[in-house]
Nucleic acid binder design. Structure first.
Lengths: 220, 220
DNA sequence: GTCTATAGCCAGATAGAC
DNA sequence: GTCTATCTGGCTATAGAC
């Protein structure tokens, strides 16, 4: 069910049925653009080029389709990030900048293409705005696991980083990564002609400096 | 129409009618929680304790109510921030940390209370997710003005900061400020017992270190 | 200004033909 | 598996009584 590596791919669902795959793909596109309530089953089936009844046939309801999509994409995103962390942290000469860059780059490239990874982020933010975190046990555990691994990686690459400071660092870093995806239009307005490299290096530079400043303790 | 200082106040609308005010307040609360499509006129009038027809009587349509609310709150937020920047930059001994702290603190306090400022941010994020930026000229001009002023302030407090680097710094800083409001529930999960001071100082520290790192140029 | 009643529409879900 | 047809209900907006 879960696809480990999804860079440079897009419509990579593994369902048994073609129609089912097209429904998942169409639903993801529309949910991320217009939200759950803003998307009708009719919109989804039209985009997928199949009949209105198909959503209920394959998923039972519009809501179950959404949930399956959300858990699937969240798992993919987190498993991809986990793999990246393992790979970078296994290198004896790895720096904090290396880790940040490897985590940020695929996300930024995806944001420019508007494909899967950026959709997953939009999914997550929509969920957060709807206050669904903390109620969904599957999502909560996945995010918790990932944050714990990332905090450990930060402490490995930044010796002396306290435990609570590492957790703050995780949240801070995530905010830097998400922002360009959410405010893509604004970036284009303010930084006309910006490139993936410019944004990626900005996040790596600011993230590394910011994270290093967390070593100094909480005193202002 | 626009209220300049809204700290520690909440239901501070200035319409002529009481019912109109209650509608604005109820609509803001529900739109921010469930989004435009997820909120019905029935929900709003029920929350405001008045009749279904009131929305159309006072605003013409559900959509016009939303737009009025959005422009009003965006103006308030930006005018408040502009005032803060003027005040801090007028002080001859002002530091970068001073400015960041003054910009961040009211937002964080508001996030904890869940009142107006945090709602404005949720509004903005929803708008961004719906790709409405770039179409709404009023919002675009307001944001542009604010970003320009903030970039100038950064260049004043960080001598040597290049123009484009200042624009990147503005976007980076905004991402740090917005995050705790969007992922409030996650903060509670990851940093149990966190305080406004802890988060504020984290953002000020990381923001200042990150912004200073922008002085070094774009070379990695 | 505030209400009730309702028009007109579109939503999600399902029954049943093929 | 895929389709058409349809049920049921909620939605926005409005007409018109008070």
């Amino acid at each position: 069910m879960f696809v480990l590596c999804m860079e440079n791919t897009d419509n990579n669902f593994e369902s048994s049925s073609d129609t089912r795959n097209r429904l998942l793909y169409a639903a993801e596109k529309l949910f991320c653009q217009r939200g759950f309530e803003g998307t009708s089953v009719r919109d989804i089936t039209a985009e997928a080029g199949c009949n209105i009844a198909a959503v209920n046939y394959y998923f039972g309801s519009k809501e179950k389709l959404y949930e399956e999509l959300f858990h699937m994409r969240l798992s993919e995103k987190i498993q991809g990030h986990m793999k990246t962390i393992e790979q970078v942290c296994a290198r004896p000469d790895a720096t904090l900048e290396d880790l940040l860059r490897e985590l940020v780059r695929p996300t930024m490239e995806s944001a420019l293409r508007g494909d899967t990874w950026s959709r997953v982020v939009r999914f997550l933010v929509r969920e957060a705005l709807h206050h669904r975190f903390g109620r969904d046990k599957i999502a909560e555990e996945l995010i918790d696991k990932f944050f714990e691994r990332l905090a450990a990686a930060f402490r490995q690459l930044l010796p002396g980083l306290e435990k609570r400071a590492a957790w703050r660092a995780v949240l801070t870093f995530e905010s830097l990564v998400m922002h360009p995806i959410l405010f893509f239009e604004m970036y284009d307005l303010v930084l006309p002609g910006f490139t993936v490299k410019e944004i990626t290096e900005q996040i790596v530079r600011v993230g590394a400096a910011g994270l290093r400043s967390c070593l100094k303790g909480t005193a202002e």
